[in-house]
């Protein structure tokens, strides 16, 4: 509706978040109804460049729904979302060029090898020739898939499939990474590895990561957005949260909010 305003210039407005700088993700009053069920009730938040934000909430709170609306996989009932200044509804192709998205279930084909899967992912992002090869190589290195390149995705364990999905999301060096529960189903060692990887990624990407594991947020994110029954109830940096709740741990704050 407001396509005319959805120009790249808008990205220069400042962020309320921790790091300041330009705003990459801007969500305004985003609402989603599934028939009668009000899944997301007017969510609004902003993410600045280089931020790593943990998106917290109990199961079924609307985390995935919000993220899917943000990447253009699901239309919002009302409200709007912008990524890098482009409206998700009006300029979805431009938005999709700039995001790497890892859904809850990694979108990988069981009948392809890891290499073929990543080649396919690279082609969908429009990467060609040497650029595609370099990007695939880097992704494989980062997600430590070197030894599994020629195995079929279907033969890999869930943890490895998750890593293939993550490697795929990283292709083409997207400005924004949106990761939906990236550590679910991984073993403790892999979880540790993925968390370290996300911290590393934060130097190049803006990351919005959802989780229901509380420690994860304190480990990788500087800022927390908490959603409960479709409503955003907390949007603050970790440091400020501690101050406001006189030194309580994130678990305590979170549980108090859930039970409210």
């Amino acid at each position: 509706m407001e396509a005319a305003e959805a120009s790249a210039g808008d990205a220069k407005t400042s962020s309320p978040g921790a790091s300041g700088g330009e705003t990459l993700i801007e969500v305004e009053n985003l609402t989603k109804f599934y028939r009668d069920f009000h899944a997301v009730k007017g969510a609004s938040f902003k993410l600045g460049r280089g931020e790593v934000v943990g998106f917290l909430g109990p199961n079924g709170a609307g985390k995935s729904t919000t993220m899917r609306m943000l990447v253009g996989a699901l239309p919002a009932t009302s409200g709007r979302a912008r990524v890098c200044g482009f409206d998700v509804h009006e300029d979805d192709i431009e938005v999709k060029r700039r995001i790497g998205y890892l859904p809850e279930i990694p979108p990988v084909y069981f009948d392809l090898t890891v290499m073929d899967q990543l080649k396919f992912g690279a082609s969908l992002k429009g990467l060609k020739g040497a650029e595609a090869r370099a990007s695939i190589e880097k992704s494989i290195d980062r997600c430590q898939l070197q030894e599994h390149v020629y195995r079929l995705v279907g033969q890999l364990s869930k943890g490895f499939r998750q890593r293939v999905g993550l490697a795929q999301a990283l292709l083409g060096k997207p400005e924004v990474l949106i990761l939906d529960e990236p550590t679910v189903g991984l073993d403790p060692k892999q979880i540790q590895y993925v968390r370290a990887l996300i911290q590393e990624l934060a130097t190049e990407h803006t990351v919005l990561l959802s989780t229901h594991i509380l420690q994860e947020v304190t480990m990788v994110a500087q800022r927390v957005i908490m959603i409960r029954r479709g409503e955003i109830v907390i949007d603050d940096t970790l440091a400020d949260l501690h101050k406001k709740h006189d030194g309580k741990s994130i678990e305590e704050i979170f549980l108090a909010k859930v039970e409210e």
Binding site: G72, A73, I93, I99, P103, I105, V108, Y109, L124, Q168
Partner: peptide, 14 residues
Amino acid sequence: KQKTMELLMTTPIT
């Protein structure tokens, strides 16, 4: 079924 449609829907293709 395999939710790979999500990949086709969230990459810059028509």
